[in-house]
Design a protein around this nucleic acid. Structure first.
Lengths: 186, 186
DNA sequence: CCCTAATTTGAGTGATAACTCTAATTTATA
DNA sequence: TATAAATTAGAGTTATCACTCAAATTAGGG
């Protein structure tokens, strides 16, 4: 994969894999389907990827990374920033959002490494949300802030889950409702 | 299926299907796997079920029904009752809970009838939660109660989703945190 | 206890899954 | 432009998928 053609083909294969997982789930994501959608033959696929699993894992990594823009940032995000960033992720990268949810409930079942990765990612998100809460209201105890952060992150995941089921679901309205409630609880 | 033996075999097949979907997801739920776990041969399976899909749909219906005990009830549940009933469902019927979530994100992708059924079920739940909110606080407008109900149901689904990823997750604590927050928001 | 129908057996079908291999082609560079 | 390596083509392999079927067994009403 040193030539330009190889890199482009790799991109097309990853794009096809992404949209297949998002659209038809892991069951519908076969080598043949990927190759058809990417306009490639199996030989080319296996020249660039050692296995189907590797292509899927690459897309999953992409999805996990896309959930948190600037994950190692300066730590100055407000709770609003974090919630709105997730809302934007769901709206602007619906395919990756669906990949994230689908893999969490299906792919992680038979792949402990993957479920561990997703759990660590979740914990990182909770810490980030908790830090934002404490920054905003320093009087709140860390334990309490963490509990509140976890509740909020889980609720956001509930929204993402529902979006998979109902593409017309109004993510923005519900994300903002969560923020209002969070403010009301204080 | 008029003899006792047939009914028992059917039960074993459904039990195997349930635990396979819960444990390994739809991908791992093959006829061979179902038959092995049920102690049955393919011929017996197809004597009792017209297709693999029918067996799965039966389990899915079972799961949907189990989410809402007494779905056509007298309409006297409090919000606490409803939340605690869902908590109990997640704790006491973890396999069915996983089936529900797995089918929502995977099975519904290629089966519009199924996704329609899940969406209607969701709407019914929201109405029930909204009614409980209004019963408890009649001054709240119906629209507002519905919005609050939806937020709560989605948050509960987020908890169920996370439970699929982390079997050690403390469902009860988080369900109660949701209730406290709901009370605080008023 | 007999007879019919329900049930179980278990080998077998065609389709399709993931993946391999060799030959042909294209690409970048010396 | 010659060459070595990267890429693509596409038929082929092996395994497993959902599903079928005819024969053997078992269950239960009369």
């Amino acid at each position: 994969m040193r030539y330009k053609a190889g890199l482009e083909t790799k991109d097309r294969i990853l794009g096809a894999t992404r949209s297949l997982i998002a659209g038809k789930g892991l069951e519908g994501t076969t080598i043949k389907a990927i190759c058809d959608e990417a306009g490639v033959l199996p030989g080319s696929f296996y020249n660039l990827f050692p296995s189907k699993e590797q292509a899927i894992l690459t897309v999953v990594r992409e999805a996990i990374d896309a959930v948190d823009p600037d994950p190692g940032g300066k730590g100055t995000d407000t709770l609003d920033d974090l919630v709105l960033a997730y809302e934007r992720f769901l709206e602007e990268q619906p395919a990756l959002a669906r990949v994230y949810i689908r893999i969490a409930v299906s792919g992680a079942a038979t792949n402990p490494e993957l479920s561990g990765r997703l759990l660590r990612h979740h914990e990182g998100r909770v810490r980030r949300f908790a830090a934002a809460i404490q920054r905003q209201a320093p009087e709140i105890a860390e334990e309490h802030a963490t509990r509140r952060a976890e509740t909020l992150v889980l609720a956001l995941n509930g929204i993402a889950l529902h979006r998979v089921l109902d593409p017309h679901f109004d993510v923005a309205a519900h994300a903002r409702a969560l923020l209002e409630d969070a403010a009301a609880v204080g």
